[in-house]
Nucleic acid binder design. Structure first.
Length: 510
RNA sequence: GGCCCCUUCGUCUAUCGGUUAGGACGCCAGGUUUUCAUCCUGGAAAGAGGAGUUCGAUUCUCCUAGGGGCUGCCA
């Protein structure tokens, strides 16, 4: 292989929000580029004007930013190979279609969409294989192969709509060496004369893709497996355009599959199975329908990226937690798997839990404080940090710390019924009363002192922890479970703790 | 239907001809914990099937089956 500078691109079309499979493709491109000191480029493939969705491009850019998969150049970023939006490159493509026309590797086709539909319908009714525009059928269609030169010129002059199709050679084995899959081979007899240039003056993906990759000096095409069937066509295009020398290497990634059943992960699966398929929340501008996103669900971007990296790739060691830099250092396309991977939401949650725990108390306190503020709860940073410290071991998400510890921010309004029934009785009431008396005398209200005091009380009265603990917890938190009560009370402070004991004695059944 | 790709525990995967087939998630059991969670220990759990190559196949080849993708003037 040459010394060519690594330049890879992520080329989504703005037809909707980017789903996590797309993010993973972008990630692998990014990791590969950074590993080799190359460039990662974002190109927007918007040659289909009919499918354009408002806001999709911004969504793609914002998603990449959130994931820290930052393009070195491209749409929304800088770069010397622009424009990076294919619709703005429109007039670049025609000349290559003409080149193909001149060299006899392409031809004009005047068949209307209706013509083609009826051919396909006919074939369907006959129960034969799908109808294709190919080396045999093209001889009975309206194109510059069957029509006289004069008629073609006349039609062109009359501005009759036409498309330009590639003219595939007959019975030729097209082979290429995919970095992930090895040799892939397809016979041209099984391929069709794909449209390269549409009647609306826009190129199709196939032409635009090859032209742009060439013009942007792309060295490696890393894309999803859904492109594998058209890779031979692209190989041929490079050859016909005379660009074989600088043709990029190909690597086709395995697909992300539905966790249940069959098929590739699609945007509906998230809502159906209870997890986001999108990095960011997306609101369909037309229907108003909202699709959830990992960011809004409280996932750490790093955890999301780490999880995605492992869906189809692994480093060959037993390490699973990787920073972006570690991913860059250990990533190779050779270690990408061939088979599709089913998404596992439990594993994603686990990744998030690991990242949550890895946060420093300081940082987690800050995140928690922000989270609380969003919920309308104002506390100072120290308090948020103190609570986070005792709650982080039992949380998967920052929000869990609030959901599982509401008593840190307000006295219990109701007391858990089951716990009241099972743990609250005359004895419990008596113990809380006694403990209150002991606590009131305390000068220091730290966890250690509280524990000592509490245990001394147990000792004096020959009581087991189980006799006193649950009722005490119920009085303070309203719940039957939670972290160490000494920690909880220390955080709440003396005044609040005593006050809650008083309230409980009043409100709980005698 | 046709073409192409793929196939190790339920899931993500390790293994690059010789292993008690390893790890992680999830699950189950035990222990720690006043409780829940955490944590610790242990456990169940896999080479789709059939031929061949080989002294020896999870690993190489072929066939079958299964899965996936593509089959648009969509990408």
């Amino acid at each position: 292989m040459s010394e060519r500078k690594v330049r890879v691109r992520f080329a989504p079309s703005p037809t909707g929000p980017l789903h996590m499979g797309g993010v993973r493709t972008a990630l692998y491109n990014y990791l590969f580029a950074k590993k080799h000191g190359g460039d990662f480029i974002l190109r927007i493939e918007d040659t289909d004007q009919t499918r354009f969705v408002d806001g999709a491009e911004d969504y793609i850019i914002e998603s990449l930013k959130w994931c820290h998969i930052l393009p070195d150049e491209g749409q929304g970023f800088s770069g010397n190979y622009g424009p990076y939006r294919q619709s703005e490159r429109k007039n670049l493509y025609r000349k290559y279609a003409d080149q193909l026309l001149e060299s006899g590797h392409a031809y004009y086709a005047f068949d209307t969409a209706e013509d083609l539909d009826s051919m396909r319908d006919l074939a369907k009714q006959a129960g034969t294989a799908n109808w294709q525009y190919n080396h045999v059928t093209r001889n009975s269609m309206k194109n510059s192969i069957t029509l006289s030169q004069q008629e073609v010129s006349e039609r062109l002059e009359r501005n009759e709509p036409y498309v330009i199709r590639i003219k595939l050679p007959r019975n030729e084995e097209v082979k290429f060496n995919d970095i992930i899959r090895g040799w892939v081979s397809v016979n041209t007899n099984n391929m069709d004369d794909k449209v390269l240039f549409k009647s609306d003056g826009m190129p199709t993906y196939h032409l635009a893709n090859i032209v742009d990759d060439h013009l942007m000096d792309i060295s490696h095409v890393i894309r999803g497996e859904e492109w594998l069937p058209s890779a031979p066509l692209h190989i041929l295009l490079y050859r016909f355009l005379g660009w074989e020398e600088k043709r990029p290497e190909f690597a086709h990634l395995p697909l992300l599959l539905k966790p249940d059943g069959n098929g590739k992960l699609s945007k509906r699966d998230g809502d159906r199975l209870g997890f986001p398929v999108f990095p960011l929340q997306w609101r369909n501008p037309e229907s108003g329908e909202v699709f959830s996103g990992y960011r809004e669900q409280g996932y750490f971007a790093d955890a999301f990226v780490n999880m995605l990296a492992f869906l189809g790739w692994n480093p060959g060691t037993e390490q699973e937690l990787f920073t972006m830099q570690e991913l860059i250092d250990s990533f190779t396309l050779e270690r990408v798997n061939k088979a599709g991977a089913k998404y596992d939401h439990d594993k994603t949650r686990w990744f998030n839990q690991q990242y949550l725990r890895a946060q420093s108390d300081e940082k987690l306190g800050l995140l928690f404080q922000e989270e609380l503020e969003g919920a309308g709860i104002k506390v100072d940073h120290q308090y948020a940090t103190d609570v986070a410290k005792v709650m982080k071991e039992r949380a998967y998400f920052v929000t869990d710390m609030l959901e599982e510890g509401p008593y840190f921010f307000a006295p219990p309004v109701v007391y858990d019924e089951k716990t009241v029934q099972k743990k609250w009785n005359a004895d419990a009431r008596h113990h809380v009363q006694q403990l209150k008396v002991h606590f009131e005398t305390l000068q220091y209200f730290d966890a250690e002192t509280l524990e000592k005091t509490f245990k001394a009380y147990l000792e004096e009265n020959s009581l087991g922890f189980g006799k006193v603990g649950p009722g005490f917890r119920l009085a303070i938190t309203g719940l039957g479970m939670g972290p160490s009560m000494f920690e909880v009370c220390a955080i709440l402070g003396k005044k609040e703790t005593i006050s809650r004991m008083e309230t409980a004695l009043e409100k709980l059944p005698a």
